[in-house]
Design a protein around this nucleic acid. Structure first.
Lengths: 200, 200
DNA sequence: ACCGAAACGGACCGTCGGTCCGCTTTGCCT
DNA sequence: AGGCAAAGCGGACCGACGGTCCGTTTCGGT
């Protein structure tokens, strides 16, 4: 059966409350009871919907990622733009998305017990970027190159550069894009490389 | 006054116990009382020495990083080796160090409340790598390039590639090194780049 | 041997994630 | 409309754990 109307209302209220509270205070100043209270529901309801703390955070992040998911899919099939520019756009827009939701994404990275950033959305993003990269430079190990780029877009990494090292966001953004361009041009095939490179 | 002998003994016992337990079970299956018991001391002793959970994890990681710290310093001043190879060696050895201590380092990244990986040792490593890079290619933004490389050596990133994506460690290692070489050769100055690159 | 300082340890406390079960709401079916 | 089963709700409750406190023990200098 479809979701009952009160359940749907509560689910949205909980997601909104959680997003607001985590954004305001940071994850570790928010307990499940606070979220329930802010959403106007009981604690049990939060746990029934989302299973546990991690599930809630994952749902919040996934909820806010719909927009990005659609955009990244559109980018995949935008044939008229040169492939290299599509990679650059992809990386730039993903950067913007992550920066806009930094507290939430860092919360997810922190709360994920087994493997951070491994909701299906992240995997999808990785696959799509790899596809784009392969179109630009088929000689590359696109799979690995995508990982290498995405590593620079982790919430923790970005937060570190901006908040701790004091770099302006714009500079980090263009740094990431430069990195993407450098990667696309270069010959980065770890297997071949390592075959001709003894020792380390 | 110098540290009392019983205090010193207990400190080492606690560090060893914590390292072992976290390595065996993963951070979130280890509580402070377990560590105290395994070290043969009372809970209060653990908290007096290390302040809190985060302090303990930080101390454990710092303890295991002495060796790397010495090695990286030696690398800085090894003038007879060409600079590019010193960077490659630096990155490769750091990779080995991180992989060897993956559970511990991931624990630190997870537990650090404000900013992960920002103990003094990480800053030192970053500075040293930037210095080396600047020697190879003064045209580069060495500071940023070092960050970009180190992002690929985060515990989470490595764990993700190996445990989740199933890549063999050797391949990741050579991938990181290839990335380093590509970065060194390329012209990666975010500020100059962005000046000539409108939009994204 | 003595003594003050430092360290110890485990009982204790408050918080929080997660569970449970009796009560309420919903929405379909007659 | 009214009734009924199922789905949902909520908050009391529990156990675990991080962190504190203070009476007791150990150290090491004299």
């Amino acid at each position: 059966m479809a979701e009952r109307s009160d359940a749907a209302r509560n689910r949205l209220a909980i997601l909104a409350a959680a997003e607001r509270l985590i954004g305001e205070r940071g994850l570790d100043r928010v307990c499940m009871e606070d979220v329930a209270a802010a959403a106007g529901v009981g604690k049990g309801t939060v746990f029934r919907r989302f299973g546990d703390r991690e599930g809630l955070v994952q749902a919040v992040v996934a909820h806010g990622a719909q927009e990005w998911l659609a955009e990244s899919e559109a980018l995949l099939t935008a044939g008229e733009v040169p492939a290299e520019e599509r990679v650059v756009t992809f990386v730039g827009r993903l950067f913007d998305h992550v920066v806009a939701r930094l507290p939430l994404i860092r919360a997810l990275e922190r709360v994920a017990s087994d493997d951070s950033a491994c909701d299906g959305n992240a995997t999808l993003t990785q696959t799509r970027l790899a596809t784009l990269i392969a179109q630009v430079n088929p000689g590359l190990d696109a799979h690995y190159a995508a990982h290498a780029l995405l590593a620079n877009l982790r919430g923790d990494v970005l937060h570190h550069l901006v908040a701790r090292c004091g770099l302006p966001v714009d500079r980090v953004r263009s740094g990431v894009i430069s990195l993407a361009r450098a990667l696309l041009v270069g010959d980065l095939d770890p297997v071949r490389r390592s075959a001709t490179m003894p020792g380390l």
